[in-house]
Design a binder for these strands. Structure first.
Lengths: 148, 148
DNA sequence: TTATTATATTATAATCTCTACAATTAGTGT
DNA sequence: ACACTAATTGTAGAGATTATAATATAATAA
């Protein structure tokens, strides 16, 4: 059984267990998110599924991405004023973002529990989670720059 | 000489050195950012300076926050679809954000150079910087919850 | 100090992302 | 297949930010 199929099945099980109905649109959005390596925006997804669902509304995409986020299936990544990007949650990982072309690449790093503890201790907050991203220039864009 | 005055003078020097004109509006926005402990939104700043500059345009606030960001004087903090918040850059620090009331509190932590190095090594990116935030519930909101 | 010139400000319209709403359609358990 | 409830659709609208063009002003040099 392929990785994608596996992930999709688990995701559908999660939805069923949470009492969220499985519609063709939801199925397709999940499928697209799982096979996508590009951390798509809501609009990317909308456009990608236009062929299969000519009558689908953007609202449906947004609604379902919110549902998936609430159930913990996807993470919403927000960068500046541009559109949010959505990431199917498999294992915990962080992102490196190219400041020239916007490409997002995953990398793994042992959880920063220490930071959360320190923050909690210093500020008195009850900490729930954290977010971290690294910014820089991807190899391709670095080459571009050297050539010109 | 007070801390605030010091910071302001340095900021003005930076602008002069970069060839950015020092207008009354810019002066006021910087001043407000420096004395503010609240990480204001563009609109907060606009409203706060309404008294002093009845004719100032929102566009001016946005334009100048962008200029300040480009020069490295302020950092833009973005959270999903809500307004960006702006933070005068003094020393390096991170933020803890209350998920209930939105309050932002600073805390210090030794730079996560190690993460940047790992990310660079794994992905081949030239890393320029990173961003991290911790999320949770502030003491006040925690109390609120217990009472009810 | 004044004249010059590029830059900044203003006011407004427009754009872009996302959400609210009401009517219609369609899953799901019996 | 039925009934019940939730999901989808289409559209209008909110909120944040930016584009544009006309006007005003800071900085520089004469």
């Amino acid at each position: 059984m392929s990785h994608e199929h596996n992930d999709l099945q688990e995701a559908l099980d999660t939805l069923k267990a949470t009492g969220v109905r499985i519609t063709p649109q939801r199925h397709a959005i999940l499928e697209y998110l799982i096979q996508s390596m590009t951390h798509p925006t809501a609009d990317d997804i909308y456009k990608a599924l236009e062929g299969k669902f000519p009558n689908m509304s953007v609202a449906t995409v947004y609604n379902n991405l919110r549902v998936f986020r609430e159930v913990g299936l996807v993470k919403e990544l927000t960068y500046g004023d541009a559109s949010s990007r959505f990431d199917f949650v498999t294992t915990d990982h962080y992102h490196v973002i190219c400041e020239d072309c916007g490409k997002i690449v995953d990398f793994h790093y042992p959880g920063l529990d220490e930071v959360e503890q320190l923050a909690s201790h210093v500020t008195g907050f009850k900490v729930s989670h954290h977010r971290m991203e690294v910014y820089g220039t991807c190899p391709e864009c670095s080459n571009e720059k050297e050539v010109h």
